[in-house]
Simulated scan of single mutants.
Amino acid sequence: MAELEFPEDRRDRIIEIIKKNNGRISIKDLFDQFNISQSALYKDLNILENRGLVIKSYGKLALNESEERKHNFFQNLQKNAGQKKAIGKCAASKVTDNETIFMDGSSTTFYFCEALKRRSLKNITIITNSIFIPRVLIMEDNINIITVGGIVNKLIGTSDGDIWEALVKNTFYANKFFFSCYSMSTDVGVLDPIQNDASMKAVFALKSQKNICLVDSSKFQQYSTFNWIGLDEIDVIISDTGIESDTSKKLMDKGIELIIAE
């Protein structure tokens, strides 16, 4: 098989080959299907693994089916959409003129942007690593958009990388950081499953004056892999009416402003 012209096309082909082999293949068998060096193939596999798409183990490669099912951006847009839209509308009301905002690439912040378009605000600057949010806001004359570069994770629709994290850390500062998460525990804080995305969010939080978490009630008391921010670093949580009273009390006892979106 001839080498594909673009590395991203080749990585897409790798995923398709694994799928056609019932989700598993040996790295040797995969290598035989490409006219590239071993180092080039392993670079592709490392990138796919960092994106949460595949798992490497003892010379074997497996499709990370659970990640594909749970974290696909477009699938997440459909999950608890009513609650997310209410949370997004409430969050948009917390933005004021002349603010600079960090924003992650979650489905809830996508709905936040939809609501933000309907407000008559002046001179808003949004800094994001999302590849979808700029498309929502591109026609808004009152909103300036700065996108953070890096390697694009097509699964969750964000870009990241060490160089770009350093750029944010050394260059930008925001009034507020609006973000969501895979899960939230009242014991340990916010958790997400993909390391690079969690790392970029941690940098946004570090350089923001106020951290505002948009989290629907289904995500409470759940757990994931990377705990990138503690509850003591979160100023505001916006959730929905499904949140349990015990969870609400624990959050408020920690000094967090809890807002329930109707």
Rank of each mutant, 00 (worst) to 15 (best):
R10K: 10
I14R: 03
I15N: 03
I18F: 02
I36Q: 09
I36Y: 15
I36K: 03
S37I: 07
D44Q: 13
L45M: 06
N50R: 07
V54M: 11
I55W: 03
S57T: 02
S57Q: 13
K60R: 11
L63C: 11
E65S: 14
E68V: 00
H71T: 00
H71R: 10
Q75M: 04
N76C: 10
A81F: 13
Q83L: 02
I87A: 01
C90T: 12
A92K: 03
M103S: 13
S107L: 05
S107G: 06
L116V: 01
S120M: 06
T125W: 01
I126A: 04
I131A: 09
F132V: 12
I133D: 05
L137D: 07
I138F: 12
E140D: 11
I146W: 00
V148W: 05
N153V: 03
D160R: 10
T171K: 13
Y182F: 04
S183Q: 05
T186F: 01
D187Q: 15
V190P: 02
D192G: 10
N196S: 14
A198D: 04
K201M: 13
V203T: 14
A205L: 12
N211K: 14
Q222G: 06
F226L: 10
W228H: 14
L231P: 04
D232N: 14
I238K: 05
S239H: 05
E244S: 05
D253N: 15
I256F: 00
I260P: 06
